[in-house]
């Protein structure tokens, strides 16, 4: 598992990199990779998402090949794009989504923030609202896109949309939950530390010839 810290990177650039890595992982020429990054402010919407969830007509989201509805990415939010082969692990999308949730819950707990799942509403939640969003795309059983964990973002941009297609969906961040500043680099380090081990535990890689 290769973990790459891309710092702040434009959405389209990161998407192009994901596409390239996904093709490589499917072909067996690239190792499974976790990209960790922040985006400059951008709205994206899943292929099945509804434009009706964009409340502000000035918002023009990028429509992308992932599940879920409209969301916002921007500074202070840790984005993770795991490019992993479920074909070599376990062909089970729900299991993969539950793994991402478990990872994020564990990372939140590292900062003494208790977050949980709400059945049927993929992502992780606290009393205050949604702490992290998840939206995944899979081609030839290789994953793309992934999760966005609100660490210390300005939450105002979420007010211009129905996050994840849920009207009035409250959004929260690790900083708000922890009641103080949470350095994004530390959160990134926790994700990096936990990712490979938990993935292996939940979706064990099957040994094969290569």
């Amino acid at each position: 598992m290769v973990i790459r810290d891309l710092g702040i990177i434009d959405f389209q650039d990161a998407w192009a990199l994901q596409e390239r890595l996904a093709a490589g992982v499917a072909a067996g020429t690239e190792p499974e990779t976790l990209l960790l990054l922040e985006h400059p402010s951008v709205y994206t919407i899943g292929s099945g998402g509804s434009e009706a969830n964009i409340l502000d007509p000035d918002v023009t989201p990028v429509r992308i090949n992932r599940g879920g509805d409209v969301t916002w990415h921007g500074p202070g939010q840790l984005v993770g794009y795991p490019i992993v082969s479920l074909d070599r692990r376990r062909r089970d999308l729900h299991c993969y989504l539950r793994f991402l949730e478990e990872l994020l819950m564990a990372v939140a707990a590292d900062f003494r923030v208790e977050a949980w799942r709400i059945p049927g509403r993929t992502g992780i939640w606290t009393e205050q609202g949604k702490l992290a969003s998840i939206g995944v795309g899979v081609r030839r059983w290789v994953t793309m896109h992934g999760f966005a964990l609100n660490v210390v973002p300005d939450l105002a941009p979420f007010a211009r949309i129905n996050p994840c297609g849920m009207a009035g969906c409250p959004v929260t961040s690790l900083a708000e939950e922890a009641g103080g500043n949470v350095p994004l680099e530390e959160v990134k380090a926790r994700v990096a530390a936990r990712f490979a081990g938990l993935l292996e535990e939940r979706l064990t890689r099957q040994e094969n010839d290569n």
């Binding site: 899943g46 292929s47 099945g48 090949n65 992932r66 599940g67 879920g68 999308l93 729900h94 993969y96 989504l97 993929t122 992502g123 998840i134 939206g135 995944v136 795309g137 899979v138 081609r139 030839r140």
Partner: peptide, 16 residues
């Protein structure tokens, strides 16, 4: 060829 895109939960799969 990818002929369709299918969604389950928050994950989409491109169907070959």
């Amino acid at each position: 060829d990818i002929i369709a895109e299918v969604e389950t939960d928050k994950a989409n799969m491109e169907l070959e």
